[in-house]
Protein backbone atom coordinates (compact mmCIF):
# COMPACT_ATOMS: atom_id res chain seq x y z
CA UNK A 1 0.00 0.00 0.00
CA UNK A 2 2.98 2.34 0.02
CA UNK A 3 2.42 5.13 2.51
CA UNK A 4 -0.84 4.55 4.38
CA UNK A 5 -0.73 8.08 5.83
CA UNK A 6 -1.49 9.58 2.44
CA UNK A 7 -4.61 7.45 2.10
CA UNK A 8 -5.73 8.44 5.58
CA UNK A 9 -5.35 12.10 4.68
CA UNK A 10 -7.25 11.69 1.42
CA UNK A 11 -9.96 9.72 3.20
CA UNK A 12 -10.20 12.34 5.91
CA UNK A 13 -10.57 15.10 3.36
CA UNK A 14 -13.27 13.19 1.50
CA UNK A 15 -15.10 12.56 4.77
CA UNK A 16 -14.91 16.27 5.54
CA UNK A 17 -16.38 17.13 2.12
CA UNK A 18 -19.21 14.63 2.51
CA UNK A 19 -19.96 15.87 6.03
CA UNK A 20 -20.08 19.47 4.82
CA UNK A 21 -22.39 18.58 1.94
CA UNK A 22 -24.63 16.44 4.10
CA UNK A 23 -25.14 19.05 6.78
CA UNK A 24 -25.68 21.84 4.28
CA UNK A 25 -28.41 19.81 2.64
CA UNK A 26 -29.84 18.85 6.02
CA UNK A 27 -30.04 22.52 7.05
CA UNK A 28 -31.74 23.41 3.75
CA UNK A 29 -29.10 26.02 3.11
CA UNK A 30 -27.02 24.82 0.21
CA UNK A 31 -24.92 27.90 -0.23
CA UNK A 32 -21.97 27.77 -2.57
CA UNK A 33 -20.03 30.41 -0.63
CA UNK A 34 -20.45 28.59 2.67
CA UNK A 35 -19.38 25.39 0.97
CA UNK A 36 -16.32 27.15 -0.43
CA UNK A 37 -15.39 28.52 3.00
CA UNK A 38 -15.65 25.11 4.65
CA UNK A 39 -13.74 23.40 1.86
CA UNK A 40 -11.02 26.04 2.15
CA UNK A 41 -10.74 25.37 5.87
CA UNK A 42 -10.40 21.64 5.20
CA UNK A 43 -7.87 22.30 2.49
CA UNK A 44 -5.90 24.57 4.79
CA UNK A 45 -5.75 21.85 7.45
CA UNK A 46 -4.73 19.34 4.80
CA UNK A 47 -1.82 21.49 3.70
CA UNK A 48 -0.73 21.96 7.30
CA UNK A 49 -0.70 18.20 7.78
CA UNK A 50 1.17 17.60 4.53
CA UNK A 51 3.75 20.29 5.18
CA UNK A 52 7.20 19.13 6.20
CA UNK A 53 9.64 20.77 8.56
CA UNK A 54 12.96 20.97 6.79
CA UNK A 55 12.09 20.82 3.13
CA UNK A 56 9.49 22.66 1.17
CA UNK A 57 8.63 20.87 -2.06
CA UNK A 58 7.44 23.06 -4.89
CA UNK A 59 3.99 21.44 -5.04
CA UNK A 60 3.37 22.22 -1.37
CA UNK A 61 4.56 25.77 -1.99
CA UNK A 62 2.12 26.23 -4.85
CA UNK A 63 -0.67 24.65 -2.81
CA UNK A 64 -0.04 27.29 -0.17
CA UNK A 65 -0.69 29.97 -2.73
CA UNK A 66 -3.91 28.17 -3.63
CA UNK A 67 -4.90 28.06 0.03
CA UNK A 68 -4.11 31.76 0.37
CA UNK A 69 -6.41 32.54 -2.57
CA UNK A 70 -9.11 30.34 -1.02
CA UNK A 71 -8.78 32.11 2.32
CA UNK A 72 -9.07 35.49 0.63
CA UNK A 73 -12.29 34.41 -1.08
CA UNK A 74 -13.54 32.89 2.17
CA UNK A 75 -12.78 36.10 4.02
CA UNK A 76 -14.70 38.10 1.47
CA UNK A 77 -17.63 35.69 1.79
CA UNK A 78 -17.60 35.96 5.58
CA UNK A 79 -17.53 39.78 5.40
CA UNK A 80 -20.44 39.63 2.97
CA UNK A 81 -22.47 37.43 5.31
CA UNK A 82 -21.70 39.59 8.33
CA UNK A 83 -22.60 42.76 6.43
CA UNK A 84 -25.95 41.24 5.44
CA UNK A 85 -26.71 40.44 9.06
CA UNK A 86 -25.42 43.63 10.68
CA UNK A 87 -26.42 46.31 8.15
Amino acid sequence: MGRPGRHLIAGGFMTWLFAVTFFLVLMKSVDLMVFLVLVSIGFFLLIEVLDTTFVSPSHVLYLKYLVAAGLVISGAAIIDKLARVLI
Binding site: G75, I79, D80, A83
Partner: peptide, 15 residues
Amino acid sequence: PEPSTWVTVLAMKTA
Protein backbone atom coordinates in the same frame (compact mmCIF):
# COMPACT_ATOMS: atom_id res chain seq x y z
CA PRO B 1 -29.60 45.72 -3.77
CA GLU B 2 -29.34 45.01 -0.08
CA PRO B 3 -28.19 47.91 2.12
CA SER B 4 -24.98 46.00 2.74
CA THR B 5 -24.10 45.74 -0.94
CA TRP B 6 -21.53 48.50 -0.76
CA VAL B 7 -19.67 46.53 1.91
CA THR B 8 -19.86 43.44 -0.26
CA VAL B 9 -18.60 45.33 -3.30
CA LEU B 10 -15.74 46.79 -1.25
CA ALA B 11 -14.84 43.36 0.13
CA MET B 12 -14.96 41.83 -3.34
CA LYS B 13 -12.74 44.56 -4.78
CA THR B 14 -10.25 44.08 -1.94
CA ALA B 15 -10.35 40.33 -2.48
